[in-house]
């Protein structure tokens, strides 16, 4: 059966594609916030930078230039031209930061994926079954929430062992309660709506109601939460790296970069400033974008 490619032959002009129209409407509201658009542009920029790191980075991040240790940023000279300077081992800061983008984005992405998948499942189960199942799940989440996030992540990494992967797992666990709560709250609200009753009258079983009928309607706040968790994950990964519990040297993760150059803070400030700026700008951009996303997805702010 062919999907309709008819260009609308009935009363009233309608845009040809549902998806296109939705995207256009979304962009209209999103682009009202200039800062959100700037944030989005920056994020797209660093994603491209991460993908094409091999072509953009002027040097290999691991090569140590023994005769250019702790060089200040310079360009145009005949030797030791490094745009962001070099670190304690003579490695190009710029290249290390560019490659570090990959790690941060991957860390953020992994955390978000883990949290979304596990959080949604728990949230839906809690919302559907209520009763003691709900109580147990929510109390576990409360327990996780009762310990400050970074502290808990530190404890988990201490148990699992240092490393970027373990850092991501630890951070995911500390973010889980937010996703579970959001899903559960949305679920409970949507559960009272009549289209759910209609599905039940049609004979829908448990799984269908949970994941096919209700879950798609809970996604909007989750998308916003995921975006903001992305930025916080980058920050927390950097924090763990700084504390020596996350990515280990010589991995060029931004936080780790700051940690390994900590002693040079006064004598060679570029070695910690640029990684710090990278973290700052990435987190800022994603937060700005997340704000714009929230406003665009909030139906009450829609005008038409």
């Amino acid at each position: 059966m062919n999907q309709s490619t008819i260009n609308s032959i009935e009363s009233g002009p309608r845009q040809p594609s549902v998806l296109r129209r939705n995207l256009l409407e979304f962009w209209y509201y999103f682009s009202e916030s200039k800062t959100a658009v700037v944030g989005l542009a920056y994020l797209v920029g660093i994603i491209l930078m991460a993908i094409f790191a091999d072509f953009i980075a002027p040097h290999d991040p691991t090569i140590q230039y023994r005769d250019c240790l702790e060089q200040a940023p310079s360009w145009g000279g005949d030797k030791c031209n490094f745009l962001f300077g070099t670190d304690y081992a003579g490695r190009d800061m710029l290249s290390r930061i560019i490659y570090g983008t990959r790690l941060s984005l991957v860390a953020g992405g992994m955390v978000v994926i883990l949290c979304l998948s596990i959080g949604i499942v728990f949230g839906v189960i809690a919302g559907y079954f209520r009763g003691w199942v709900d109580t147990i799940i929510m109390r576990i989440m409360d327990t996780i929430l009762s310990v400050p996030g970074l502290l808990m992540a530190l404890v988990l990494v201490a148990i699992l062992g240092p490393g970027l992967l373990n850092a991501m797992i630890a951070i995911s666990i500390t973010y889980l309660p937010y996703f579970v709560r959001l899903t559960r709250a949305s679920y409970i609200t949507e559960n009272t709506k009549e289209y759910v009753v209609a599905s039940k009258v049609s004979g829908a079983g448990k799984f269908r109601i949970m994941f096919i009928t209700i879950l798609p309607n809970c996604m909007a706040p989750l998308i916003v939460q995921a975006t903001l968790s992305f930025s916080t994950a980058i920050l927390d990964t950097a924090a763990l790296g700084f504390l020596g519990m996350g990515a280990q040297p010589p991995t060029p993760e931004w936080g780790t970069l700051i940690a390994e150059n900590r002693d040079l803070m006064l004598s060679a400030p570029w070695t910690v400033t640029f990684p710090g700026l990278a973290i700052l700008l990435a987190v800022l951009a994603i937060n700005l974008m997340g704000d714009g996303l929230r406003d665009a997805l909030d139906p009450k702010m829609k005008r038409s």
């Binding site: 009549e194 009753v197 209609a198 009258v201 004979g203 009928t213 798609p216 309607n217």
Partner: peptide, 23 residues
């Protein structure tokens, strides 16, 4: 029971709430 259930169907009051907005 399932077969008998199919013989009884329902329509609701709120036309805006009784259709799944994501489908």
């Amino acid at each position: 029971k399932s077969r008998l259930r199919q013989d009884v169907q329902m329509i609701f009051q709120d036309p805006y709430g009784s259709l799944n907005p994501r489908k």
